[in-house]
């Protein structure tokens, strides 16, 4: 498997506060990596650094390198807009645009110059299929995205992210606001997407991390405590802190 994304000594500050204290992590193609750890451990901040979303927070600062395909994207000359076009992101709370289902998905491709109606239709269908939503919405593509249930909205957001064919997908607790059935569907979707994408997922749910990820990284107080195969982390972690967190969580 090829490396696609690597961070080097990544430090992130909010004002005076150092939220991420030098993290080195490598992500490979076609994999799912889970970032776990207690609230405030810096895992979400780290995730948002990967597509430079932290830039939008006034007072945030970042040092260190993020290599994507051989280019350091934490460089002043990086075109953040282009970078973000190539990295999808989905949040904890579904945030579909206040538009129709179709318009939500077609928006990105249209912006990137796809004008052909048939091609757009294809992209919409393809993205919705990948997000396992097609069958549920194919008869009402032109109704409001807000009329969907929470779980459907979240899958729509995944489909929207997929519509521009990113190679990397960042998921920030994508299922934590959803019911168990929707969560299961999202997990299923993630497992299927793994075949084509590098997925990084932040989660509070240990079982979820165990079910879907190949590798797991445990964060604590802004540091990366342990990174290994998920199996290893959950059965035989090297670090006692990881052991404590995981067992505490499993209760």
């Amino acid at each position: 498997m090829t490396d696609i994304l690597r961070t080097e000594e990544l430090k992130i500050y909010y004002g005076q506060n150092e939220a991420v204290k030098g993290v080195d992590l490598t992500f490979t193609e076609n994999s799912v990596t889970a970032l776990i750890g207690p609230s405030g451990c810096g895992k979400s901040t780290f995730l948002r650094a990967l597509n430079r979303m932290n830039d939008e927070i006034p007072g945030s600062r970042m040092t260190g390198n993020i290599w994507i395909d051989g280019k350091n994207i934490n460089a002043p000359d990086t075109d953040v807009t282009v970078l973000r076009q190539n990295i999808g992101m989905v949040w904890q709370r579904p945030n579909p645009f206040y538009k129709s289902i179709y318009a939500n998905i077609a928006f990105g491709p249209k912006y990137h110059g796809v004008r052909n109606k048939a091609e757009l239709d294809n992209i919409v269908e393809d993205s919705l299929r990948k997000a396992a939503l097609w069958d549920e919405v194919k008869d009402r593509l032109h109704t409001s995205a807000l009329s969907l249930s929470g779980g459907q909205q979240q899958r729509l957001c995944i489909a929207r992210a997929l519509s521009v064919q990113p190679k990397i997908l960042l998921l920030d607790e994508p299922a934590s606001a959803l019911d168990p059935v929707s969560t299961a569907k999202i997990e299923e979707t993630i497992l299927q997407l793994k075949e084509q994408l590098c997925i990084v997922i932040v989660t509070h749910n240990m079982q979820q991390a165990a079910r879907i990820s190949g590798h797991t990284a445990y964060f604590y107080m802004g540091r990366l405590v342990e990174y290994d195969k998920t199996e290893k982390i959950f059965t035989n972690p090297s670090d006692p802190m990881t052991q404590e967190y995981i067992s505490g969580r499993f209760g």
């Binding site: 597509n51 979303m53 807009t81 973000r84 076009q85 992101m89 929207r160």
Partner: peptide, 9 residues
């Protein structure tokens, strides 16, 4: 945020 993360201006 959704728009920004999609790489829209």
């Amino acid at each position: 945020e959704a728009g920004l993360a999609m790489g829209l201006s």
